[in-house]
């Protein structure tokens, strides 16, 4: 089904990974991130890679889908890698002009790249296997203990839900406005950055006006449907921890033990801080 095309990244399914409670999944991904940054040797990363691959395999999300999430930050990863490669002090391997590559530099660069790589992989697997609405529900519940110290958990979740709901509507509208302005001879493609930015003004103004009108109408419609904030609100969907979640936690527990065990037994690889 084409539902939830909203973010262009939810990959619907009914696998164990999909069925994990969103709260559990968010927490497990946090644990995963902690692991990613705690691992101190390459054997640890090999283990993490195997674990991650297994998760992707179980979730039945095609690998190329998962890798697509990496695309926008490839440049970032490469730059980080290069910086670390050249700017780390230590035992020189070779020198060229003003650049010196050290043994520590190679190790550290490899580690930074691996960390970023797994960081993105883990979080995109979360968004790929959790529908936006489950994600907001999960976040709302996880954040609700912080309501006591004034964190507007329900309002944040509601804002996210509405934002997700209106992204496609506003995109469609932007498209329409661009077409309408182009039909009147507006030119969005040529000229330098400044000119192009200027050309955006006639798109943004009608878009903002319409967005405010929509917001106003939506607020009235929500009032008509008895909306009065998060208090005493019930939910259609029940978030319930089950066996699947227990399994997930156990798997992560084992992974954690293995990761920290390896750190302890093998010690850090060269260059790792």
């Amino acid at each position: 089904m084409l539902k939830d095309i909203t973010l262009g990244q939810y990959f619907p399914g009914n696998t164990v990974v999909h069925r994990l409670d969103p709260r559990a999944k968010i927490l497990l991904v946090l644990a995963y991130i902690v692991f990613v940054f705690s691992i101190k040797n390459f054997v640890g990363y090999a283990l993490l890679a195997a674990f991650t691959l297994a998760c992707i395999f179980i979730s039945q999300v095609p690998i190329r889908f998962v890798l697509k999430g990496l695309k926008p930050i490839v440049v970032f990863i490469v730059i980080t890698g290069l910086f670390n490669l050249f700017l780390t002090d230590g035992e020189p391997i070779f020198t060229w002009w003003i650049f010196t590559v050290t043994k520590e530099g190679v190790g550290f660069a490899a580690f930074m790249i691996l960390r970023l790589f797994f960081l993105i992989l883990g979080t995109s697997l979360l968004t790929l296997t959790t529908s936006p609405i489950a994600l907001t529900d999960g976040l709302e519940q996880l954040l609700s203990p912080f309501k006591k110290i004034g964190l507007p958990a329900h309002e944040l979740a509601m804002m996210m839900t509405i934002a997700l709901r209106f992204i496609p509507t506003l995109m469609e509208e932007t498209d329409k406005i661009i077409k309408a302005q182009s039909a009147r001879g507006a030119d969005f493609e040529s000229g330098n950055i400044l000119r192009r930015a200027k050309a955006m003004v006639p798109i943004l103004i009608p878009l903002f006006i319409s967005a405010f009108r929509r917001a106003d109408e939506l607020a009235t419609a929500m009032e008509c449907r008895c909306y009065r904030g998060g208090e005493n609100r019930t939910r259609l969907r029940e978030l319930k921890l089950g066996k699947v979640d227990l399994g997930g936690v156990l798997a992560f527990l084992l992974l954690g033990i293995a990761v920290f065990g390896l750190n302890f037994w093998l010690g850090p690889s060269v260059g790792v801080r």
Partner: peptide, 27 residues
């Protein structure tokens, strides 16, 4: 378009009874 809150149909239809605090089965 300006009356819908959620990005899944049944979630949207559930919005009003959720606000009214109707029990889950009843929703």
């Amino acid at each position: 378009d300006n009356q819908m809150v959620a990005n899944i149909v049944e979630e949207d239809v559930a919005f009003a009874p959720e606000n009214l605090g109707v029990p889950r089965d009843e929703i």
